[in-house]
């Protein structure tokens, strides 16, 4: 039984699968239970949370073997909201491929529950959204991208193991987005 099969089975385990899990050992069961307990949170799109610069920096430096598409946006930013459906479409189109989508919201932390969470469950359920609560922009903006003037949306395409780094300084159309992803894989 390979690993990916196991994770799939945990989502809807029947009795044979459970038996297999017993054979696989106690830790598999434990992991399965943990995953189960997390499922409601994931399916409600409640995986969004507030982060600070160190975590952002870790995300930018992530060297696991895949492409990370990092989109900086906010619910109050019209062009950002307009391009979001393209990102969600691309996220679905590249499901199962080594591409991660990370949405970095520059909404205010005070709007997290009242504004951001409802927006996510309405427009982008299941998306990995992080509210970057660092409003001293001049302290970090150049570390993300020196040529970034401060407007959103912007998108970074980071494939660190392959040393690929692309910066889109404004909103993208679906075709442009797909092109950027395909050429960064």
């Amino acid at each position: 039984m390979n690993h990916s099969l196991i994770t799939f089975d945990w989502i809807s385990p029947g009795f044979p699968e459970l038996a297999a899990m017993f054979r696989h050992g106690f830790f598999s069961i434990l992991a399965g239970v943990l995953l189960f307990s997390m499922l409601p949170a994931i399916s409600n799109g409640q995986s969004a949370r507030i982060i600070h610069w160190p975590e952002m920096q870790t995300m930018l430096a992530d060297s696991t073997d895949s492409l990370t598409v990092i989109n900086f946006w906010a619910t109050w930013c019209k062009p950002c909201v307009q391009e979001l459906p393209y990102f969600e479409k691309a996220r679905a189109a590249f499901a199962g491929k080594p591409v991660r989508f990370r949405y970095i919201s520059l909404d205010f932390a005070s709007d997290f529950k009242s504004r951001l969470l409802p927006f996510i469950s309405r427009k982008m359920p299941g998306a990995q959204v992080y509210l970057l609560d660092e409003t001293d922009y001049n302290a970090w903006i150049d570390k993300v991208e020196p040529t970034w003037g401060g407007s959103i949306p912007i998108t970074l395409f980071l494939n660190n193991p392959k040393k690929i780094r692309k910066f889109a300084p404004s909103e993208l159309g679906y075709e442009q987005l797909i092109q950027n992803i395909s050429s960064s894989l």
Binding site: W76, C77, Y137, N138, I141, D142, W148, G149, G150, S151
Partner: peptide, 8 residues
């Protein structure tokens, strides 16, 4: 000179 973040 600083960067001004805001609405485009």
């Amino acid at each position: 000179l600083t960067k001004a973040v805001g609405c485009a």
